[in-house]
Design a protein around this nucleic acid. Sequence first.
RNA 1: GGAGAAAUGGCAGAGUGGUCGAAUGCGGCAGUCUUGAAAACUGUUGAGGGUCACACCUCCGGGGGUUCGAAUCCCUCUUUCUCCGCCA
Length: 423
Amino acid sequence: MLEVAQIREHKDVYATALSKRNIDAVSLLDQVIVADETRRSSQAKLDEVLADSNKFSKKIGMFFKSGEVQKANLLKEKTAGLKEQSKTLQEQLNAASEELQSLLYQLPNIPHESVPEGNTDEDNVEVFRKGDIPALHDGAQPHWELAKKYDIIDFELGTKITGAGFPVFKGKGARLQRALISYFLDKNTAAGYTEYQVPHLVNETSGFGTGQLPDKEGQMYHVTEDDLYLIPTAEVPVTNMFRGDLRTHDELPITCTGYTPCFRREAGSYGAHVRGLNRLHQFDKVEIVRIEHPDRSAIALDEMVEHIKTILDELELPYRVLRLCGGDLGFTAHLTYDFEVFSTAQDRWLEISSVSNFLTFQANRLKLRFKDADGKNKLAHTLNGSSLALPRVLAGILENCQTPEGIKIPKVLVPYCGFEMID
RNA sequence: GGAGAAAUGGCAGAGUGGUCGAAUGCGGCAGUCUUGAAAACUGUUGAGGGUCACACCUCCGGGGGUUCGAAUCCCUCUUUCUCCGCCA
């Protein structure tokens, strides 16, 4: 959620920045400013009435104390009108606040100046690329064929017990999954991130805190009986751990990592691109989250990108990093880098990580603040990224590391797996 | 699931109808002392809205009510603790 005070002061800057998202935010920003003015003037009127009313109450109290009951009763009559007024004004204020709130919920975060113009993922800008795309042997296969050939993932079995998009991992496939999770967590904790295990269901307030609600209502599984949501990413429970906090500046940064399964309804997805591990309803992911001082969040984002690069370097997978364009940028994000691994057998890039800086957008909703060196309370900056999402990394390994003899496990994973080949 | 108790500032913890945004302690900040630090002592220190700045308003788990007036009384929800039951 954008900050009203900022919108008030820098409306033009905001309008220009938001235009990169290919939306015309001018009228929405104007509405926010009007709604805010209405809210403030309602508040001022109400405050005045309440101030009068407080004065009367104090006097009444004093009259009762001194035994001047008649005077007290006389004043009591006067307060009746004030009470009516305050009730009406309170209703006006509530309406104005709700109006303002709903307008603010409609405004996405402002893109960073480096965010490229563009509408779709085709307009994203590649900023880094590394690793050789291997020349595969004849008869090389896409990962879903390999999964079947080596009997390590059973998609049909998952369909039987749940539905499409819920694969069953088996034998060395299951072991490789566990190895990847451990390896990622070890890399993250070695880089200073504290490991957490968090709930996989969250309440509505948490959904609003990180911005999944109301924007992505339909993308989350909703357990209506208990009004809980299955998490679409660990970002939600991990970031919400700090909801409402007031920290001191020397507590920052706070850096967390956690493994969770992620659940996404993926309503509207279909076709060849969802085949195999490409798009699932349930998948595993290791996430990193940082709570940063505003002065440091830009650097922190770079650090996160560099950190993820080292993981992919070690895995020896061909990958690239993209800076997302305005049209592809998530609702809550200010600047996002996507990591993609090359799927050789499919001849396409697969997104395996998304690393973003949210500035105060989430913190404003979360009321996540810190006391700065100057003694002032300020909103913190939040960032997060996948480090990494499992299925497509697995797809990348299966496809890029396939040999006529079997799948050759990247060296760094061998100690975690306990085997060198899937054959 | 049943019975009882509780929820107060960064933390601990008093406060049962008005002068309470709230004692006290810890922590934080500033100062005195010290070569420096610690200790001790003194002062200061909740959050949000509002204002150029004041004033002023709101907030004692959430929501609603009683009252001229609520941290305090009533209703309700949530959470925590204790006891019982059940159980991975």
